[in-house]
């Protein structure tokens, strides 16, 4: 239906929008094509998978005693990594949020750091720190700190950008300075959400920490790697089950806490 003369006309979708759509479709098509090739490999691998699983049983339960200490180390890595990541993520997310930091001079570098840290995967961080600080949990802890920082700061800054502008406006009106403005107008609105993010990040980090050892960053991953290398799948399965139990326990506790916060 064409509007009659004098009414504003709906702006037509710009060329940019069409280009974006076309690009997305092309990417989708390409990725479908790529995975199709590996799909046949996947099917071919099924018998191998069966052999692998068969060799897992019976599990070598005595191995639990050996992996208890590295498991504790893994949890410690995750706790410290999450904590340090969170401590640095909060301030930078305020700098990156456009409703808190109005000037681009601070916001642009903050966003740059934030995006950059997210382009580097946790395994690469771990390999990097393992090379610099030697193999061990320190490298894992640092890797998880950087990894958590990247993810937490992005979640936090996106949460901050959606908060209600009203309380912030009210804080401007009462004559608050910038820090008071953030402390009274912004933080109460995002704190519960942020704590939830940190808990969730911890859940992710436990899983990530279990893998990091493969590249030499301490914790349970080293043992995972070792048992796999020695074809001791009966021990591998113990590690996997143990990790699973820990992850489930932490998930249960953390989602309880998160549920209480909202």
């Amino acid at each position: 239906m064409k509007p009659s003369e004098g009414y504003p006309v709906k702006p037509s979708p710009s060329l940019k929008k069409w280009m974006t759509l076309a690009l997305l479709l092309a990417l989708l098509w390409l990725s479908v094509r790529e995975t199709e090739a590996s799909l046949s490999e996947l099917i071919g691998g099924i018998p191998e998978m069966g052999k692998f699983i068969a060799k897992m049983f019976p599990p070598d339960w005595k191995y639990l005693r050996v992996v208890l200490k590295p498991m504790i180390e893994t949890i410690q890595m995750a706790i410290l990594g999450t904590t340090f990541g969170a401590i640095f993520a909060l301030p930078i997310s305020f700098l990156a949020a456009s409703n808190v930091t109005k000037g681009w001079a601070l916001r642009t570098p903050a966003r740059f750091i934030l995006n950059l840290s997210r382009t580097i995967p946790d395994l690469l961080f771990a390999a990097l720190f393992a090379t610099v600080f030697g193999y061990g949990p320190l490298a894992g802890m640092l890797a998880l700190s950087f990894f958590s920082f990247g993810i937490l700061s992005k979640w936090a800054y996106e949460a901050i950008e959606t908060i209600d502008n009203g309380p912030m406006e009210a804080m401007t009106a009462v004559g608050a300075n910038k820090l008071q403005w953030i402390y009274f107008g912004v933080i109460p609105q995002v704190l519960a959400q942020f704590v939830g993010f940190v808990m969730y990040m911890f859940e992710i980090n436990i899983r990530a920490a279990a893998i990091l050892g493969i590249v030499g960053a301490g914790g349970i991953g080293i043992y995972l790697n070792r048992t796999l290398g020695m074809f001791r799948y009966d021990q591998t399965v113990v590690i996997i089950l143990f990790t699973l139990v820990i992850v489930l326990a932490i998930d249960a506790v953390s989602s309880r806490i998160r549920g209480k916060l909202i």
């Binding site: 009203g166 309380p167 009210a170 009106a173 009462v174 004559g175 704190l191 519960a192």
Partner: peptide
């Protein structure tokens, strides 16, 4: 100068998750 001027908004603009008294005390930060 701003702390000497109170403002009342249509949408109240309180921090909803904070207590009433904390919202009132926020008027004192200046």
């Amino acid at each position: 100068m701003r702390r000497g001027i109170g403002m009342i908004f249509q949408s109240f603009n309180l921090v909803k998750r904070s207590s009433v008294v904390r919202n009132v005390l926020a008027g004192r930060v200046g």
